[in-house]
Structures are given as C-alpha cells and as structure tokens.
C-alpha cells in the first residue's frame, strides 16, 4: 500500500532519496508524517473504507487534468462571448459545468467580475477553500497564515506585495471562501487582445489573476 505512487506517479515528485547510496543498506525511512499517512491508509483499507485505485485516480486527476488552464478557458470565453459572461454572472456553477468543469470543491462557484471601479480578490480565512475544478490545488501563498490573515485586513498592501497597484478610486472587494462557496475572479480583458481567439486569450490569463492577486497588463 502506498508504494503504488512510487511507480506510476514517481515523476511527479522530487524524490531526494531516489539514488543508489551504498551507505543506506536499508530503505530510507520516510518522514514522520508520511508514516502517519501510511498508517491511516493501511487501517482504512483493512476496514474496507478506501479503495487504493481510487486514491491513484484522485492524485492523477489533480496532478495532471485539473489546473488553472480550466479557469483560463472560462475567463477567455467570458471575454469573447457576452451571453456566456451573462450566464456566468447568473449561475457560474451551471455555466462552468457545461464546459465540463465540475467536481469536488466546485459544487457552488460564484464568478466575480473585475471592473474599472472594482477589483475582486479571494481568500479563505478558515483554511484553504479554493475552486479546484477551475484552478487546481491552491499555491502555498494562498494557504499561508500571512495571506489568510492579511487579505481581509489590508488588501491593498497585500496586492502591492504581489506587484498590483490599483487606481486610488478603484474599490477592492475581498471574498472569503467557505466550504460551500468558491469564487473565481474574472479579470478585465487586457488591452491589445482585440480579435484574439479564445485559445490565445486563455494563454494571457494567469492563475493569480483569477484569485485577484494579479492584474493582466496590455498584450503586445
């Protein structure tokens, strides 16, 4: 159990001990939390509560198939098709489901649109709730105490640290995710993208812009 990842999915991870070391006669002892996870897996599998193949499938999905490219496709379509943007405003969960993006942590998605007068930014002050089907697994900074505690208190300062400088009269609205509601920021379409295909547009979208910690500059 557990070692199935070492084969199929080994390429995903940095494996610092993955070399022949004559000083190690025995296998390298994994770190304490890794052993605790193995203990959980072993016990839950013995009880028939988990299926190891399902665990592989979940890891594979989040490592390869789910990520910010999904959110970028949604943003690009919203920029290109006004009726889709409207559908997204009305019911984002349904609109993105129609594009094939649904699943865990995406049960109730709300799209918040940046405008010249309002910049939106997302945080999860409790833990790290995030729209997985659209953005994948959150980056470390989203999960850090610093971001979680400061995003609500001093959003402009936090944004400045991300290199985002907003006009003084632009309002910042911070959305706090919960276990039930996830937010996707729809950034403003950058200048210089007139006539671009949705595929081209999607490439201009950054992950951070969909969390609200980046603003897309003019494209050349």
């Amino acid at each position: 159990m557990g070692l199935q990842y070492a084969g199929k999915l080994a390429h995903l991870f940095a494996m610092p001990h993955d070399f022949d070391d004559p000083d190690h006669a025995h296998s390298v002892l994994p770190p304490d939390p890794a052993l605790r996870v193995k203990a959980l897996e072993t016990l839950l599998e013995r009880k028939g509560l988990i299926d190891p193949a399902a665990l592989d499938e979940i890891i594979d999905t989040y490592a390869h198939r789910v990520g910010p490219q999904n959110g970028a496709a949604v943003v690009a379509r919203a920029w290109d098709e006004p009726e889709f943007a409207e559908a997204l405003k009305q019911d984002a969960t349904a609109a993105v489901r129609d594009m094939g993006f649904y699943g865990r942590q995406g049960e109730h998605i709300v799209a918040v649109f940046n405008t010249p007068g309002q910049h939106n930014m997302v945080v999860c002050t409790l833990c790290s709730c995030y729209p997985w089907p659209l953005l994948g697994i959150p980056p470390s900074w989203f999960k850090s105490d610093a971001y979680r505690s400061r995003a609500v208190r001093e959003p402009r300062k936090v944004l400045a640290e991300f290199g985002v400088k907003l006009a003084d009269d632009t309002k910042v609205r911070v959305w706090d995710s919960t276990a039930e509601i996830r937010y996707l920021v729809i950034p403003e379409r950058p200048e210089g993208t007139e006539g671009w295909s949705q595929e081209q547009l999607a490439k201009a979208v950054t992950r951070d812009s969909m969390v609200g910690t980046d603003v897309l500059g003019a494209q050349s």
Binding site: Y5, A14, I59, Y62, R104
Partner: peptide, 27 residues
C-alpha cells in the same frame, strides 16, 4: 498561462490529500 508550480511537493502530501477527498466522496 505561466508554468504551473508543482501541485504536491512530496508523495505524502498527495496521499493525505487523496485520502481525504476519497473519504469525503464515500460520505
């Protein structure tokens, strides 16, 4: 899109994540 960061930095990060998601899916 810029190059993505690695989603899990160690195998046990992925394992504990998957275990949790799976247990939740099993109600």
């Amino acid at each position: 899109m810029r190059a993505p960061e690695p989603v899990f930095e160690a195998p046990w990060h992925a394992q504990v994540f998957a275990l949790t998601v799976h247990l939740h899916a099993q109600a």
